[in-house]
């Protein structure tokens, strides 16, 4: 009799506890719910937005979608290791090194059109994913440097090969205090 009673109390106590904690958890889940962006948006935020297509997708957003659907995170050469690390953090997976099949991380470049050679074919304008090339048919084209993402996509379509990718120049405001790399001028 007393045994039954003991078991009953135990069951009741545990049941009651479970109920209370369940309620607390449920309440917390509702009350402290963290609103977050959809995953694709978050991934897209991390990607460098060069829209270069080196990942094999026609832009950063589609690749973000693909990552969200389970594609590898190491297909973005412009973002490099930094982007992979961030993606790994976001996706909760191991960061791996850049997939060499998609290219190598390179210094930042911008497209430059050798304007006297440009024939005004507008092919590069159509290729540019961010509308950073200005020009009209039969007119010389030029690149808006500030808008160029350095995606390389305009180089191939050019029939006269007048587009170069030139590295962005260092300037004092983007200098990262790498004192050791200051070029020392020899003074005679």
């Amino acid at each position: 009799m007393s045994l039954t009673f003991a078991i009953l109390t135990a069951l009741l106590a545990i049941g009651l506890l479970a109920l209370i904690f369940g309620l607390v958890l449920g309440f917390a889940a509702v009350k402290f719910k963290v609103e977050s962006d959809p995953l694709v948006e978050q991934i897209d935020q991390i990607l460098p937005q060069t829209q270069c297509g080196q990942c094999g997708y026609p832009g950063c957003k589609p690749y973000a979608q693909a990552i969200a659907d389970g594609d590898e995170i190491n297909k973005c050469p412009p973002g490099g290791d930094a982007t992979i690390k961030k993606l790994a953090d976001l996706m909760g997976v191991e960061a791996k090194s850049l997939d060499a099949a998609h290219g190598q991380e390179d210094i930042k470049k911008v497209a430059y059109i050798r304007e006297d050679e440009c024939i005004g074919c507008t092919k590069c304008i159509q290729a540019c994913p961010v509308d950073a090339i200005l020009g009209a048919a039969k007119q010389m084209h030029t690149v808006i440097v500030d808008e160029c993402t350095g995606c390389d996509l305009c180089v191939d379509p050019c029939p006269v090969d007048c587009i170069d990718m030139i590295p962005l120049a260092n300037n004092a405001s983007s200098w990262r205090w790498n004192i050791d790399s200051i070029p020392i001028k020899q003074i005679g």
Binding site: W177, I179, D180, Q186, I187
Partner: peptide
């Protein structure tokens, strides 16, 4: 001559 470079 080579200049010493250090941060303040």
């Amino acid at each position: 001559m080579k200049f010493r470079l250090a941060s303040s």
